[in-house]
Amino acid sequence: MTVPIIYYLGLSALLFALGSVGLLLKRNLLVQFMCVELMLNAANLAFVAFSQGRADGSVIVFIVMAVAAAEAGVGLALVVVLFRNRNSLDSEDFRLMKG
């Protein structure tokens, strides 16, 4: 039995929305970062769902995962630098520039 594709898609959309809402609500840099990862993975889930029975879709998923990993590396490094400089993980502390 196969789960209808729509469920996957629904879940993926939910995760995506969750990620974006989390971004808007959470002030912690790490949480924000995780929300972004969530969004990326939601997209990935959609790919997996669409590529049911197709090899190339699955290949894409792997490529995306690789890319996301690279991004995570850079992102975490940035978080570390920010924390070192400011001793804070609150994103509202980083509002030097505006207007």
Partner: peptide
């Protein structure tokens, strides 16, 4: 342009 990254994301 409030400066807050959360607003920007919004």
């Amino acid at each position: 342009q409030s400066g807050s990254v959360r607003d920007y994301a919004a």
